[in-house]
Design a protein around this nucleic acid. Structure first.
Length: 296
DNA sequence: CCATAATCCTGTACGC
DNA sequence: TGCGTACAGGATTATG
């Protein structure tokens, strides 16, 4: 499924192949996929046709394409959810009959941008851009200090060059909760999901339910560094599966198969010490950790 | 401020 | 073989 590194790979692909294109038509095949666009399919179409994509920006797992020509502070916002893909088609004859094609944008170069989403947890919407709280650029790919309204409350992510890591480490330790829950709190830092939380904590040798107020400054930085590194590693691998014409979101084949130390490895040997990896229920999902390397 | 549960959805993997 | 069920997951909203 698309996580922050896969979304960044998509952003990069959109920057290369879609920025500068103008929308000539919109097909909404599954209204649920635009449920967050107030006004429905007709309004979405009206706000897109004739407009040009001027950039490709990402913060956490939110992705947006600011719209220009005519200039206005709005953007096409995308969240891929669990199964979303944005696929660039050189020829609309390709992919038009895909089972899970939800929204198709026709472009002025004769191609198309397809939103494919099996489970429809993702969505597209045209939304207004707002100034960020700190007045600094929005995130990867951004030149302007503007973010989409629905993503305005999302914190910077761990790969954002403008992130203040010292301040984040302090904020992490101020939280009155446990460390994994804090990692998943998008208002504290964005882009971390279940997989990277588990993998990052394993790298940092910290138990998922370690209370945040009990973290030492050194531990807090180790946790942030662990999550950052695992996402950087994944991004490197995600980048390799990128194809010029096909904006790949195939996180499963690019990354999941190989480098996971604990996620989904319940019962198997910890790559560091050989102890069986534990899988536990946590927050209505699963936590995976090594009981020896990550003592409670 | 923090925690929990419900909500959205569908393909896959089970047990019987 | 087929049927039912649990599960996977992020973001949002409501409620305690």
């Amino acid at each position: 499924m698309p996580e922050l590194p896969e979304v960044e790979t998509v952003r990069d692909g959109l920057e290369r192949h879609v920025v500068g294109r103008r929308v000539t038509g919109v097909e909404v095949r599954r209204p649920a996929s635009i449920r967050r666009h107030l006004g429905g399919a007709a309004d979405l179409t009206g706000r897109l046709v004739g407009r040009e994509f001027t950039a490709a920006v990402r913060r956490g797992k939110f992705l947006w394409l600011p719209l220009g020509a005519p200039e206005s502070d709005d953007a096409l916002l995308a969240h891929l959810g669990m199964s979303g893909q944005l696929l660039v088609r050189a020829d609309p004859a390709e992919g038009g009959d895909h089972r899970h094609l939800r929204v198709r944008l026709l472009l002025d170069d004769g191609g198309a941008l397809d939103f494919v989403d099996q489970r429809t947890f993702g969505h597209l919407a045209v939304v207004d851009l707002e100034p960020t709280a700190d007045g600094r650029p929005g995130g990867a790919g951004s030149a302007a200090a503007l973010v989409p309204g629905p993503a305005a409350h999302i914190a910077r992510d761990l790969l954002d060059p403008a992130l203040d890591r010292e301040a984040l480490a302090r904020a992490l330790r101020r939280k009155r909760t446990v460390v994994k829950r804090a990692l998943l709190d998008q208002t504290l830092m964005s882009g971390v999901g279940n997989i990277y939380a588990d993998e990052g904590l394993w790298r940092a040798r910290v138990h998922p339910e370690h209370p945040t107020p009990d973290l030492t400054a050194e531990q807090a930085h180790r946790v942030l560094d662990g999550v950052t590194e695992v996402m950087r590693d994944a991004l490197r691998q995600g980048g390799t599966s990128f194809d010029a014409l096909y904006v790949n979101v195939n996180g499963a084949s690019g990354y999941f198969d190989r480098s996971l130390a604990v996620y989904g490895q319940g019962g198997r040997a910890c790559p560091r010490c050989g102890a069986p990896v534990v899988r536990e229920k946590f927050m209505n999902r699963s936590s995976h950790f090594c009981p020896v390397c990550q003592p409670r």
